[in-house]
Simulated assay, not measured.
Amino acid sequence: MANLVETAAKVGKFNKLLQLAETAQIVDTLKSADIFTLFAPTDEAFAKLPDGTLDALQKDIPTLKKVLTYHVAFGDVRAEDLVQIEEAETLEGSVLAIDSTNGVIKVNDTNITQTDIVADNGVIHVIDHVLIPAMVAGK
């Protein structure tokens, strides 16, 4: 198998996420032996950001790092676990709200469109929007 970064690259729809992870210098963290759950926005999810948001993030590396680490939860949290929990602590330091209603799993208000892409050091869940931590959104 492969680590989270290699696994995300193989899936092929996380190019922007991987590029931004390089920029924010969190690739080594995602490749490490530590176990994480990555809520991974697709390239399409990044395209949904308001005009100028992505450019602004790429120019503000500390904020970009906060946004990206907000997508990384501690531990290997599979779909079967997500339906049993209400929140997940992130590497960024905040907590994500997890909701499972009528077979739909959401993180904050964002749909998880695919679950359980397994890597050596964790699991990837595909999401359809970029998650923005409250402290960044309130800027």
Rank of each mutant, 00 (worst) to 15 (best):
A2Q: 09
L4G: 00
V5R: 00
E6T: 10
E6R: 07
T7H: 09
T7R: 06
A8G: 03
A9P: 05
A9N: 10
K10I: 14
K10H: 14
K10N: 13
G12K: 04
G12Q: 02
G12R: 02
G12P: 06
K13G: 09
K13T: 08
K13C: 08
F14I: 04
F14W: 05
L18G: 03
Q19L: 10
L20S: 04
E22L: 03
A24P: 02
Q25P: 00
Q25S: 07
V27L: 02
D28C: 08
D28V: 14
D28A: 11
K31G: 03
K31A: 08
S32D: 12
A33P: 09
D34G: 05
D34N: 06
D34T: 00
I35L: 10
I35H: 14
F36A: 04
T37W: 11
L38G: 03
F39G: 05
F39R: 03
F39I: 03
A40L: 04
A40R: 01
D43C: 04
D43G: 01
E44R: 03
E44S: 10
E44Y: 09
E44L: 11
A47Y: 08
L49H: 09
G52N: 10
G52T: 02
G52C: 09
T53H: 13
T53N: 15
K59G: 08
P62R: 00
P62I: 02
T63G: 03
T63K: 06
K65V: 11
K65I: 09
V67F: 06
L68R: 00
T69R: 00
Y70H: 08
Y70T: 02
Y70M: 01
A73Y: 05
A73E: 07
G75T: 01
D76N: 15
R78S: 11
E80V: 04
D81P: 05
L82D: 04
V83D: 02
Q84V: 00
Q84K: 13
E87I: 13
G93H: 03
S94F: 10
S94Y: 07
V95T: 13
V95K: 00
L96V: 04
A97W: 12
A97P: 03
S100D: 15
N102I: 10
N102Y: 12
N102H: 15
I105R: 03
K106S: 12
V107K: 05
D109E: 13
T110S: 15
T110K: 15
T110E: 14
N111K: 13
T113D: 13
Q114E: 11
Q114H: 09
Q114N: 10
T115A: 15
T115R: 03
D116A: 11
I117W: 09
I117R: 05
I117K: 06
V118K: 12
V118Y: 10
A119V: 00
A119K: 05
D120I: 00
N121E: 08
N121Y: 07
G122V: 00
V123Y: 11
V123E: 07
V123L: 09
I124R: 00
V126E: 04
V126F: 06
I127H: 14
D128Q: 07
H129C: 14
V130F: 14
V130H: 14
L131N: 06
I132E: 12
P133L: 06
A134V: 13
A134S: 15
V136H: 07
A137P: 04
G138C: 10
G138K: 15
G138N: 15
K139D: 11
K139Y: 11
